[in-house]
Amino acid sequence: MSVTRSNPILTVGKYLALSGYLVFALFPLYWLVKIAITPDRLIFTEGTDLWPSSTTLDNFRTVIFQTDFMAFFGNSLYVSLGTAAVTTLIAAGAGYAFSRFDFGGKKVIVAIMLITQMFPLLMIIAPIYKIVSSLGMLNSLTSLIVVYTAFNIPFATFLMQSFFDAIPKDLEEAAMMDGCTRFQALRKVIVPLTLPGLGATLGFVFTAAWSELLFALMLISDNASMTFPVGLLTFVSRFSVDWGQMMAAGSLALIPSCLFFIFIQRYLVQGLTSGAVKG
């Protein structure tokens, strides 16, 4: 669309709109970091200024060295990485099956997977709690990994399927002609080609697991096995006045998701475009 070629007013309007979006998107995050680096003594006098008169990293130091945050961070990292790895492995298998085979019940399985994306997951929070507690698995990070894996498989499967769909069938058929079994062909020919897809899936699942709150809140009550969201929330409700430290903790929680986001964001639109062609 070449709307901008002609009219200077439109061009100005466009850049105004662009900066509006940018400010709206980034301001809250800026504020988070700003309060985190404001010294405690200035928070009440300069808390609402756009920039404090002096800055400090004390809050980060306190959070990292004097609270349980590194433990929460570690727990979350363990749960998210575990979920991402297991989900991607399982979803790659399922996505491959959807992409390469026609079989009885395929429609039904796809439909069930779609439905799991639509109904309120909160609906199963009570049964999951009872099952997990009767297995004696409350406060266990493994139970979180299992639950998150199940939640993320449907989406990850569709994602992986679209990556497999993009790879020509001829490649593995050629390998199978040359005497490979299908699994060998998958491992030696197809997997190397889908590495970016596997990476993107890992990223998506990691971010989803990293931010999950409600099930973790329900299943984890023990301080030692809290994930980051649960830990942060407990922290907030317990010490609701220490703004600087809470925001420092929040800023730290941003880091892993942002890293993954930078990695996956170029696949977002690119991948979506190829799927959206059939309007």
């Binding site: 940018l22 995050l29 971010t207 709150l213 941003l254 998701s257 964001q265």
Partner: peptide, 14 residues
Amino acid sequence: QALVFLPWAVPTFL
């Protein structure tokens, strides 16, 4: 584009 999409990556609790 990268910056404006960033809120989507922020964990919901945060």
